[in-house]
Design a protein around this nucleic acid. Structure first.
Lengths: 191, 191
DNA sequence: ACCTGAACACCGTTCAAGT
DNA sequence: ACCTGAACACCGTTCAAGT
């Protein structure tokens, strides 16, 4: 483990504990066993350190999406699994989810590039599912955006407690993903 | 305008300009024409000031939802308009959207209460739309959650630039809301 | 090349007073 | 009741040195 890796690991742990404000360069340095401004020798500023954390997390997401552990899985089943993985990851690591898709990261060209690759893979999967009749025909980019937006919104509302507003939230984020895919499956078969 | 109102207005303006970090109590005080810690006589801390901003915004959202300007509008048309208003509000005031539904607000009991009222109204609308056959039958809470999660996710991805990953995003947040309602409408009529 | 310690500006918050 | 000014602790960032 290089010092750089130690710094990223410490920043990730602090992020999980209390969000970006908890990630102080002083505490990151302390946990990595260096001085409070040693991070500046590896990252231009705090923002760059958080970007490194976000990129590391994006790489994990992409690995899940491009891996196909179930041999010969149908596109629809694979799409379902990928989207369920996505909402489970978000619920398991809510602060990483907030970081990766949050405000501060929309200026990072590096992150934008990785997001593009993940997105293209999702569009491919969607197109295959359409061809199999598991989704309605039409622009695969648009159909993929629909599925992704639902999963993203369900994960975000679930994390912030807005899915269970009355204290009796009857639908989990995973339920909503399944509901959407079921409705889209009906529409795909009936057309 | 009381001093308190001036403080909330200044905080709202600063939030729009650069997010919560930009909202410093010193600058809020300066814009309201008071000292840098006069805000402490009206709010217990910065968090409480931001909560006041969030609550003000939630009240506006609720007013849009409970108002029915189009007389005798059908439930489905009204639901469509409410959800389109929601994504337009989010795109117009991205930092307010991030504040209201973001991390820091999930501990505010007052905000939670207001969210509950808005949510119940949406469930009512959904139930009416289901009765009219514009949405598939089933638990209205769950159907409402599906619509809301899609709108929320589409708005969030649109704001952070993730809907147009390839530089040629073919679906706007509004498009996705319409797509979902169309598919749900088909499923409602065919059952 | 990588790291340290002092220093600076800025911010949230507290406190002792003022009217 | 409402406000002010000084003060404290903390943080991001910079700089002059050290090996």
């Amino acid at each position: 483990m290089s010092t750089r890796d130690d710094l990223v690991a410490a920043a990730t742990a602090l992020l999980d504990e209390g969000g970006p404000e908890r990630v102080t360069l002083r505490e990151v340095g302390r946990r990595a066993g260096v001085s409070h401004n040693a991070p500046y020798k590896h990252f231009t500023d705090k923002q760059a350190l958080l970007e490194a954390v976000a990129i590391q997390e994006f790489d994990r997401l992409e690995r899940v999406m491009t891996a196909t552990p179930t041999p010969r899985a149908e596109a629809a089943a694979l799409l379902r699994r990928v989207m369920l993985d996505y909402v489970r990851w978000a619920q398991r690591h809510p602060r990483r989810f907030a970081l990766v898709y949050g405000w501060s990261m929309n200026a990072s060209a590096d992150l934008h590039e990785r997001a593009g690759a993940t997105w293209r893979r999702l569009v491919e999967l969607t197109a295959e599912a359409q061809a199999a009749g598991a989704l309605p025909a039409g622009d695969p980019e648009r159909a993929a955006a629909l599925v992704r937006a639902l999963a993203h919104g369900a994960a975000d509302l679930s994390i912030t407690g807005h899915l269970a507003a009355d204290g009796k939230g009857r639908a989990s984020a995973e339920d909503l993903v399944e509901d959407l895919l079921r409705v889209l499956g009906q529409a795909g078969r009936s057309s």
